[in-house]
């Protein structure tokens, strides 16, 4: 590595790379979520027959992983660079390796391996098959072929590449703590995020209002179900995301017993399945606009 990319240049490089591969560069979605997969640009678009190629940075909140800004690797909020391509291109693995080269990581100078890791998010009815990618022993990317999303079979199959932005940047910039990363123009990650990390940890573990959050969860759930019945898929999905984040906050607070935990997760899963089904229905009514004209599925819709 000759020059060390700062975080924003790393993101720009990835955006340029995947943009050139035909991905639309989307922006982060504005509702709290635990992973880039839960953005509607992945979750909803991975189901149904339509094609979809997109890349975006997703800030992901995991309240239980908060460490008051004291742990060099664990964060309340980290960033994922998410690439979804559907159907998965035949050479998607080679594309990925080329993206590492674009970042200055020449495979011949490192040890890069694809180690089996089948990804699952039971609370959203998601399952996929794939790998974690190891760069000199460090897991820097999750690589998944979606098999099921929202409890629905994926056909065609979406390939999802999730780069851990902080992980990869720590490697590229050779720092031991995320807070020492340069984000851009001499400003460090710690200058931007150390305070919010502390405050969010304090809030999640000590100050959150449990009664309010329990009430929110119930209200959000009611609203989501009502909206699904009205065919208002996207607002419904926003409320499901809010349910999920509210649950994560309660969980971090230790407010959810093991028994209740399973019950909460199954409530979220039911909504995720309903909204996934409703999304495909709504897209079908519109004739699956993002299907290529020569796709046999398109003719079926037009029949």
């Amino acid at each position: 590595m000759t020059k060390k990319l700062n975080v924003q240049n790393m993101i720009l490089t990835l955006q340029k790379f995947w943009g050139d591969k035909g991905c639309m560069l989307m922006q982060a979605y504005d509702t709290e979520k635990g992973a880039g997969t839960m953005s509607p640009y992945t979750f909803l678009r991975a189901i149904g027959p339509e094609h979809w190629n997109a890349a975006y940075v997703e800030p992901s909140r995991r309240p239980a992983d908060g460490r008051y800004g004291e742990n060099p690797n664990r964060l309340y909020q980290h960033h994922q660079f998410q690439v979804v391509m559907k159907p998965a291109p035949k050479d998607i693995q080679e594309y990925y390796l080329d993206s590492l080269r674009a970042l200055g990581i020449e495979p011949l100078e490192h040890d890069i391996r694809f180690v089996e890791d089948n990804w699952e998010n039971p609370s959203m009815g998601c399952a996929g098959v794939g790998w974690e990618v190891w760069l000199d022993g460090m897991e820097v990317t999750q690589f998944t072929y979606f098999q099921q999303v929202g409890g629905l079979q994926c056909h065609p199959v979406t390939s999802e590449i999730t780069y851990g932005v902080e992980r990869l940047a720590s490697y590229i910039q050779d720092v031991n703590s995320v807070y020492d990363l340069e984000w851009g123009d001499g400003v460090l990650y710690g200058d931007i995020f150390k305070e919010p990390e502390y405050e969010h940890s304090k809030y999640s573990f000590e100050e959150s209002n449990q009664d309010m959050l329990f009430k929110f969860f119930n209200d959000y759930e009611k609203e989501a179900n009502r909206l699904i019945d009205l065919g208002l898929v996207h607002p419904a999905y926003d409320y499901i995301l809010k349910c999920s984040h509210t649950f994560n906050l309660l969980d971090a607070r230790g407010a959810v017993s093991v028994t209740e935990r399973a019950a909460f997760l199954s409530r979220i899963r039911r909504m995720a399945h309903k909204v996934a089904t409703a999304f495909v229905e709504e897209r079908k009514k519109r004739g699956f606009p993002l299907l290529p004209n020569d796709d046999p599925a398109k003719e079926k819709v037009n029949d």
Binding site: L108, H110, L135, D136, G137, M138
Partner: peptide, 19 residues
Amino acid sequence: RNGNSEHLENVIQGNEKVL
């Protein structure tokens, strides 16, 4: 490592850091 011994120092350093 899945590879030869060239640039092995990078690989060693990276693995040490992860551990």
